[in-house]
Design a protein around this nucleic acid. Structure first.
Lengths: 191, 191
DNA sequence: TGTACATCAGTGAACGCGCGTTCACTGATGTAC
DNA sequence: TGTACATCAGTGAACGCGCGTTCACTGATGTAC
């Protein structure tokens, strides 16, 4: 951030360049390493250490960006949810994000949060809160926390099951339909 | 299997010994590699190649064992489910398994199934079918497939969220309670 | 305005690491006659 | 029963790999006087 703003230095803004190179590599499904990123940013393999303490730091920065993007795609073009159907669309968007950017999704969630990285923890929490707020809006009388965990868990689990090939679908449209169906099915069985 | 039965050979049953060494290492949270497993089985580092084509083959064998164990712990000491409460206990058991054997759980689910490995695919399918059957038993009139995906997704997602530190709980008892709560909460909101 | 100095971004060579896999081999077990 | 042979489980050395990280460095940018 602070680094990103001064430009005109040697490289201009290596930090941002490294992050976007890393994103591209993740997107392309290439294996992710400091050296590869440096290479792809056209810079010596030790240059990243100017901007990131170590591999983990870079990974966390990516995760933070990922959480922001995910939040954005959950929110964009959507009114506050008012019905179970609206909530199902959250799940659909969540799974779609995971399938659109699988490697990034794995980086975001793939390891226990290091409590050390404030930004990362905050970004994950923001997601949780968004979901809780959405559920609270639709079911103000229910236990929002339990519902939020359930909604999140459901979307998250379906995302991973599709990602890991345990559930199968032909197209992204079919995935969306299945996710919607699962969400509505479980929300309507009642005790 | 065929190999496991003849004993009195050089080692007796290296295949089984390697698998159980691998399990122990996973259980102990140690990084998993062919060499480490060979070492820990007290055998030269190339010996495993007698029994497993490559790393993937060994990993798949572990996954298959894992699926069997998971199926067993879902079934054991349980009558066929008759209510939403019973189903919630499935989810509780599922998440408990994941938290009890996190590294194994990641091996089981951590990568797209290679269609090549029949046993592995079958083991994963067996799990899916068990869940579908359970749900069908409780809600015979509903769309069992959508419900099964939902139930599985919910349990799977909660498992990963706890595993990756995105949800937190003090004790395994608390996890169980939260999972149960989430499951019952979402199953009772109705449309 | 010009010079001397401090700061700091990026370099290039090198370290040690464990890994998966191959190869030609040794030596124990089982089998045919 | 004993010998000759085939089979196959396990050995040991070696390959090439990319990785994260360190180190002392160079050279460009900004700053004080």
């Amino acid at each position: 951030m602070s680094t990103s703003e001064k430009s005109g230095y040697h490289h201009g803004d290596l930090r941002a360049a490294l992050l976007s190179a890393a994103m591209e590599m993740l997107e392309a499904g290439e294996p992710f390493s400091l050296r590869a990123i440096a290479r792809s940013a056209g810079v010596s393999q030790t240059a990243p250490y100017r901007h990131f303490k170590d591999r983990d730091a870079l990974e966390s920065a990516l995760a933070v960006e990922g959480f922001r993007d995910l939040l954005a795609s959950l929110g964009q073009g959507r009114n506050p949810p008012a019905s179970v159907q609206d909530l199902a669309e959250f799940a659909v968007a969540y799974v779609a994000f995971a399938l659109r950017r699988p490697a990034l999704f794995r980086v975001m969630f793939g390891k226990p949060c290091d409590d050390a990285d404030d930004e990362r923890v905050k970004a994950a929490d923001a997601l949780h809160e968004l979901l809780a707020a959405a559920l609270d809006q639709v079911f103000p009388e229910a236990d929002a926390s339990a519902l939020a965990s359930a909604g999140w868990g459901l979307a998250h689990g379906l995302a991973y099951l599709y990602l890991d090939g345990k559930l199968h679908a032909e197209s992204s449209g079919e995935v969306a339909e299945r996710v919607r169906g699962a969400f509505l099915a479980i929300a309507s069985v009642g005790p």
